[in-house]
């Protein structure tokens, strides 16, 4: 208290000072409560006042203070490498891990097998590089290659290679929680889920959104009532999976199926791991209000 002023406190006795300060705080608190009560009474009589107050008193968040990005909401121009999926080709996915992977990687692969339709798991062989594998998969008409990365018994990354000509995405993975650990979790069925993509707004974000879109077949099986959500917030992508039920016309029940994990985009490369289209650098996080997805 009173930094910048070199004067001694005017009330010399510390105990009296503390007591008085506590009284002052209590008084201010009481005043605030009184003000709120009276305001609530006024607003109950006149709801227009409340509306006006809520309109003016908007909380400032990092999202609302986001720096201007001209690519937000801009139209997607032309085509990209995912356009073959949108022409109607069904996705066919090969899933593998890093070389010499441990249990954690196989467990995560098991979870992804449940989520992604039409997926094959192959144990990774040391002698084949990512480029070799992409070539083999493209020859066998796979549309995507997914490689899980495990380090020190933790799953820490995932690579998506769209076949045959890229692009390649690398995400880091954190906060992985298997479905069994989630309280009140349900048991998943093998229906094709519906997909919810939230907040992929910039041009780069749209590319990432199209990647996830191209992993799931066009026609979800609605009778399964399964939804996979990829929610982007401040460049972190949250993966969640639920089953929903319409209890009545207004209420919807949700049951989480799991797993939960968080992804962060680290790198986008043209082709199969060639020129860099976008790469995360630590100095990108200096400006807390700048987002890329």
């Amino acid at each position: 208290m009173g930094t910048g002023t070199t004067e001694r406190p005017k009330i010399k006795n510390k105990q009296i000072r503390q007591k008085l300060f506590a009284e002052l705080k209590a008084k201010k608190n009481k005043d605030r409560h009184k003000l709120r009560a009276s305001r609530a009474k006024e607003e109950k009589e006149n709801p227009a006042l409340k509306e006006e107050r809520l309109k003016t008193a908007v909380t400032e968040t990092i999202e609302s203070k986001r720096v201007f990005d001209e690519t937000v909401g801009a139209d997607v121009e032309g085509e990209d490498d995912f356009s073959s999926y949108f022409d109607g080709r069904e996705p066919k996915i090969l899933l593998t891990t890093n070389a010499n992977a441990r249990k954690a990687a196989y467990e995560f692969a098991d979870m992804l097998m449940e989520v992604l339709p039409n997926v094959t798991f192959i144990k990774r062989k040391r002698e084949f590089s990512m480029k070799d594998m992409s070539k083999f998969c493209a020859n066998r008409e796979y549309t995507d290659l997914i490689v899980i990365n495990e380090d020190k018994k933790n799953v820490n990354g995932i690579t998506f290679i769209h076949l045959p000509d890229g692009p390649t995405f690398y995400f880091s993975i954190t906060s992985l929680i298997p479905g069994k650990k989630i309280k009140g979790h349900g048991k998943a069925t093998d229906h094709i889920p519906e997909l919810v993509l939230n907040n992929f707004t910039t041009r780069l974000g749209k590319t990432v959104g199209r990647l996830f879109q191209s992993l799931f077949p066009h026609r979800p099986e609605f009778e399964g009532r399964n939804v996979v959500t990829l929610h982007n917030q401040r460049d972190y992508i949250f993966f969640r999976r639920h089953r929903y039920v319409f209890r009545n016309e207004e209420k919807v029940g949700l049951q989480e199926l799991g797993p939960q994990f968080t992804m962060k985009l680290r790198r986008v490369q043209k082709g199969i791991k060639e020129e860099i289209e976008w790469e995360h650098r630590p100095d990108m996080e200096r400006d807390k209000r700048k987002f890329y997805l």
Partner: peptide
């Protein structure tokens, strides 16, 4: 910051 002190003094 002096305001708090003044308030306290007033209270005293």
């Amino acid at each position: 910051p002096d305001l708090v002190w003044e308030e306290l003094e007033q209270l005293e």
